[in-house]
């Protein structure tokens, strides 16, 4: 059987032990868990990250990447969309350090860093995640990062988040 998610450019994401392996997550338990849209859009992505695979939506007609998932290719308007397995290699496109608890679960986790990461192996689409490590570290736009899969297996419904750590 052929691979349902053809790999694109470079190795797949590092499956090194995530920081959350022992329930030691970057952000505390209690934040909303990720879910597909009510119609199921995004389900393949959230299933794949549980297997520590990073997928990005890709048009089967014109090969354009797009993110987040949508029902139509914004480039060629084909409805024939699939997912490609991409490397976990990324580059910090923007960032922010949050100091205000926008959710009660965050009040003992301040500050924390949110990064917007572009994926050069997937048409520079961007993903949001947390930057692992020192919460007060200097964050450099353009810095190289790699995906880290943070498994949340202690709840009723297991899920995995995609986090990022500096490589360069």
């Amino acid at each position: 059987m052929s691979d349902p998610y053809p790999a694109s450019g470079g190795a797949t994401a590092t499956a090194a032990p995530p920081s959350g392996a022992n329930g030691d997550y970057y952000l505390p338990v209690g934040l909303p868990m990720p879910a597909p849209s009510p119609e199921g859009l995004g389900a393949e992505f959230w299933d794949a990250v549980k297997r520590h695979e990073l997928l990005v939506q890709r048009c089967n007609a014109c090969q354009a990447f797009q993110w987040g998932p949508e029902y139509v290719c914004n480039e060629c308007h084909s409805f024939d969309l699939g997912y490609a397995r991409v490397s976990g290699r990324g580059r910090i496109f923007s960032w922010e350090r949050a100091w205000y608890p926008v959710h009660p679960a965050l009040k003992d986790a301040l500050p924390y860093i949110v990064v917007l990461v572009e994926l050069p192996d997937a048409g520079n689409v961007r993903m949001v995640g947390n930057l692992l490590g020192d919460r007060r570290q200097e964050v450099v736009i353009g810095a190289e990062v790699e995906a880290v899969f943070e498994d949340h297996n202690d709840g009723k419904v297991p899920y995995t988040l995609v986090q990022w750590r500096r490589t360069g």
Partner: peptide
Amino acid sequence: PGGMAFTAPYG
């Protein structure tokens, strides 16, 4: 759900 899944779990 949906688009929020890509941001809210990360705070």
